[in-house]
């Protein structure tokens, strides 16, 4: 009895393995192997030979070179990371605001939801670069208004994000579609009873938002922020992407240098993700009381 049960279980596991097989092969061939090969390439000098490519180990040479010999790298990296770091909170906040607006039972709500999600469908690298390159995404030209001068006069810490919003309002909204729906689904899971209970205790709309809605939304906000960072960093319109692609066939250091660049970029994105998790993660002790 014991034995047959065991074999049944193993058989089940094996069948499960068979279902997993395509993914597993794919993981090994198209993800794991490239993953490690890319690390290896970034540490090597690559040369083209008639039999394919030859690699000689050079250590962290390319990584060092990126920082010391490539002025464009630092410039592109900073501007890409800056835009990710600025955009992510704004996109998530925009998604929360949009979700709150759409959560009210109004006539035509479905229409607006469809409208606000629409850009997600058409965003692609070439479309965005055509739009941005031809000025279609700047809805206001703030430099024409007096407020721009006022903003510019403020300390940089305040003025930079504000100006960034003005310049990128369309993009912030366009990139927030998926996040908006994630948060909206979260909002709809919060039941009415808890709001009613809070009302009875005398909480106003403002308090309800900060004390009930936001804490409930925390996991969805976390997911949205992670999605935003991954999504933004993968855009083909980022300067880092262009920089990596342009260096791929670099005649002196083909493959290797751009591999190193891509790892530096990946590392930077990971650090941003990590910081975001630290900021948004639930703080256990406080919750445990």
């Amino acid at each position: 009895m014991q034995k047959s049960k065991l074999t049944l279980k193993t058989k089940d596991a094996l069948t499960g393995g068979a279902f997993m097989l395509p993914w597993l092969i794919g993981l090994l061939v198209f993800t794991m192997y490239p993953f490690f090969y890319s690390i290896w390439l970034s540490l090597c000098q690559v040369e083209f030979t008639p039999n394919g490519i030859a690699t000689t180990f050079v250590g962290f040479k390319w990584y060092a070179e990126a920082f010391t010999a490539d002025a464009n790298f630092i410039k592109n990296m900073t501007s890409t990371m800056e835009s990710i770091i600025f955009s992510t909170p704004m996109i998530v906040v925009a998604a929360v605001i949009l979700a709150l607006l759409l959560n009210r039972s109004l006539r035509g709500r479905a229409f607006f939801r469809v409208l606000y999600f629409f850009p997600v469908i058409i965003i692609s690298g070439p479309v965005m670069s055509k739009l941005m390159g031809n000025d279609a995404t700047t809805i206001v030209h703030p430099d024409q208004y007096a407020i721009y001068q006022v903003l510019e006069g403020l300390p940089e810490l305040i003025s930079t994000p504000l100006l960034y919003i003005f310049d990128n309002i369309v993009l912030i909204l366009w990139y927030s579609g998926v996040q908006m729906l994630i948060i909206l689904a979260g909002l709809q899971k919060i039941g009415d009873p808890i709001y009613e209970a809070a009302s009875i205790d005398g909480a106003g709309a403002w308090e309800k938002f900060w004390k009930i809605t936001l804490p409930y939304l925390r996991p969805m906000i976390l997911v949205s922020a992670a999605y935003t960072i991954v999504d933004l960093s993968g855009m083909t319109t980022t300067k880092m992407h262009t920089h990596i692609v342009n260096n791929m066939m670099n005649t002196i250091k083909p493959y290797s240098y751009s591999s190193a660049l891509s790892w530096l970029y990946a590392l930077a994105v990971l650090i941003v993700l990590g910081i975001m998790f630290l900021i948004l993660m639930e703080r256990r002790p406080r919750r445990g009381k």
Binding site: M20, L27, V29, F30, T31, Y33, P34, F35, Y37, S38, L41, I53, V230, S233, G234, M240, H241, I244, M248, Y255, S258, S259, S262, W263, Y265, A266, V269, L270, L273
Partner: peptide, 24 residues
């Protein structure tokens, strides 16, 4: 492990994988 790998695969930027995939 597979679950963790799924997340890792999602996070790895495609730029990292493109070059070795090209070579492959």
């Amino acid at each position: 492990l597979w679950m963790v790998l799924l997340i890792v695969v999602f996070i790895i930027p495609s730029d990292v994988l493109t070059i070795p995939r090209y070579v492959l």
